[in-house]
Amino acid sequence: MTLTETTRERAGTLFRQHGALVVLGVLVVAGTLAFDTFLTPANLTNIATASSFLAIIAIGMTFVIISGGIDLSVGSLFVLGGVLAAYGSQYGTLAALALPLAVCGLFGLVQGVIIARTGMAPFIVTLAGLLAARGLMLSLTGEGATTYLVEDETFAAIGQGSPAGIGYPVFVTVAVLAVAAVFLQRTGFGQNVYAIGGNEDAAALMGVPVSRTKIIVYLVSGLLAGLSGALNAARLSSGVTILGIGLELDVIAAVVIGGTLLTGGAGGLTGTIAGALLLGVIQNLINQAGGLTSAFQQVVSGAFLAAVVIVHRFLSRRAAP
């Protein structure tokens, strides 16, 4: 192993782990210089709150992608969770939270069981989940015509309250992140997720409970999508039915920009959070600039995603074949 190769290897790892964070820092500096209104407490908490819904789902997605899978159902589960939360809120705060978690968790569980036990491709199974969850949501809302309003004040406060100017969703995100990070990095379960994504056959031979780990991963992803949907419903005071189309792709983009490899086996949660915030900052800057439609954000995000993948590919390429 030569010096240059090691340096390149290290540069690749560093970029993968912290690239999103660095770019995030650069964008924040650029935003501060360009717009007086950017680096204000109000705007920053705004970005944080707006990003938290995506970030919560992305945390679950990080587990899925590190395990070598993909979960396309999260966008649909996010909307379904919102509708169920608004519907459940007429029976109290607990129902508003428990209903989406139970149903979305069940979706994730069933998908996980199918993927783990039959060996079917996660892409297909969760695509079916995407369609099924959206169909269920539409049938609950009369083809999307009915919008349930949040009836419960306490539940609405979870989405709208902002102690010290910071919205509750941000606190929830931080809490979810902390728990998830401990599980991913410091428990046997987390090690198993990495091992399965890295080399599933080897993991099985090393004694990793492959099926169980996969099931848990999709369960967690479903639960977090439901939680995020519920929080969003609380914030909007209603179960809006037209959201979440294509959200799964934004989530995957955040995870990949954050340095998690789509091939599985490597990645982490700090990157994912940086990736989610990065998408939020790009959106915010485009809004601030005015003149550009918010759809332009997708162009920028897409270009950035491509850049990340290319740079990573370049840095991780071996010096010799």
Partner: peptide, 18 residues
């Protein structure tokens, strides 16, 4: 070799008995 190439040497060695 039936190990996980992306994981560190230590993690491979001790996976399951960290």
């Amino acid at each position: 070799v039936n190990l996980v190439p992306q994981m560190s040497v230590a993690r491979n060695l001790l996976l399951g008995r960290e």
